[in-house]
Simulated scan of single mutants.
Amino acid sequence: MPRNGRAELDAAGIVDPGLRAAYAACRELNAVHGRTFFLATRLLPAARRPAVHALYGFARHADDIVDDLGDGRSFADRAAQLGSLAVSLGTALDGGPAAHPVLAAVADTARRYDIERQHFIDFLASMRMDLDVTDYPAYADLARYVHGSAAVIGLQVLPVLGTVVPRAEATPHAAALGVAFQLTNFLRDVGEDLDRGRIYLPADELAAFGVDRGLLVWCRRVRRTDPRVRRALAHMAARTRAVYRRATPGIGMLEPVSRACVACAATLYREILDEIADSGYAVLHRRVAVPARRRAAVALPGVARALAARLRATRRVRTPSPARGA
């Protein structure tokens, strides 16, 4: 286990060897598959990072069941495996044995932070949709999928981050940020999703710009971006930016030690939209990414803010309250 991983588990008070190994497996999944998210997580206090890694690890594990199409599994196999995951998760959340390391870690996290079970149920329901839903007629249809696949992720993470206002006040903003991240991913990954037979863009809005599945497939095949596709994607990018604006007030509602992490993630994901626009919306034949030097430029000031917030929090804890009447 990397030294930083051990320090995080020590800070979180996770001492059981089996649980430490489970959390370490989730951390590795985050480090390998979620570069932007993992970078932002480094800005959290060490004690809170394992919980975020566990939530990411579970989501990634479920996502791999439905998205790894090169392993020869049939639809029925995937459906059965996803159903088994739901049962195993329920057992782990009830305090029973965990059938997989990510389940041990995420169940422990759910208990530590009192995360609602319904969020996990809603997430798995959206994963189940990925097995047989390939198109979304309108944004309202897509929104039902996005609630379970993204909004609930924001709601799961919120108790870990902590708030300075009643949690219910921050909840809509946390959900909106999860949605914004997911919509950004849809635009970035439209070509890869098309290869899996899925389109996460509302069909009626595509049609308004003269775009359909056939045109998208053609653009993917010939590695060109049709002007109609460009206009449709620009429209959807604009809506995604509006979702980020709805989410932004929630950052100030978080505990100060968590704000730098979320601000960094939000900035970097918004900049994926910038990269998409700068590419001429050529996402059907390439995968855009924020350059490493830019990720570092965003993260470094965040490190300073995070350290300052932790120092202030430490001083508040160490400074005794004045006696009443003094």
Rank of each mutant, 00 (worst) to 15 (best):
L93R: 12
L93P: 10
D94K: 03
D94N: 12
D94R: 13
G95P: 09
G95Q: 06
P97G: 11
A99E: 15
H100P: 01
V102Q: 14
L103D: 11
A104W: 00
A107M: 06
D108H: 15
T109S: 12
T109W: 06
A110Y: 00
A110H: 04
A110T: 08
R112Q: 14
R112E: 11
Y113L: 09
E116S: 14
R117Y: 04
R117I: 02
Q118A: 12
H119T: 09
H119A: 08
F120L: 02
F120N: 03
F120S: 02
F120P: 02
I121K: 13
D122A: 14
D122W: 03
D122I: 03
F123P: 04
L124I: 08
L124R: 04
L124H: 05
L124E: 05
A125G: 02
A125H: 12
A125F: 00
M127E: 02
M127N: 03
M127S: 02
M129F: 00
D130T: 02
D130R: 03
L131D: 11
D132E: 14
D132F: 10
V133P: 03
V133D: 02
V133I: 14
T134N: 07
T134Q: 10
D135I: 02
D135F: 07
Y136V: 05
Y136H: 12
Y136C: 04
P137R: 04
P137Q: 04
A138L: 01
A138V: 09
Y139I: 12
Y139V: 10
A140Q: 15
A140F: 09
D141E: 15
D141F: 04
D141H: 15
L142S: 06
L142I: 04
R144D: 13
Y145T: 07
V146D: 12
V146A: 15
V146S: 13
G148I: 10
G148W: 11
S149V: 11
A151S: 15
V152T: 15
V152A: 05
V152Q: 05
I153R: 06
L155I: 10
L155H: 12
Q156F: 00
Q156R: 14
V157R: 06
V157H: 04
P159I: 02
L161N: 05
L161Y: 14
G162H: 07
G162N: 09
T163C: 13
T163A: 02
T163R: 05
V164Y: 03
V164P: 07
V165K: 13
V165S: 11
P166Y: 00
P166H: 01
R167G: 12
R167Y: 00
R167C: 07
R167M: 13
A168P: 01
A168Q: 15
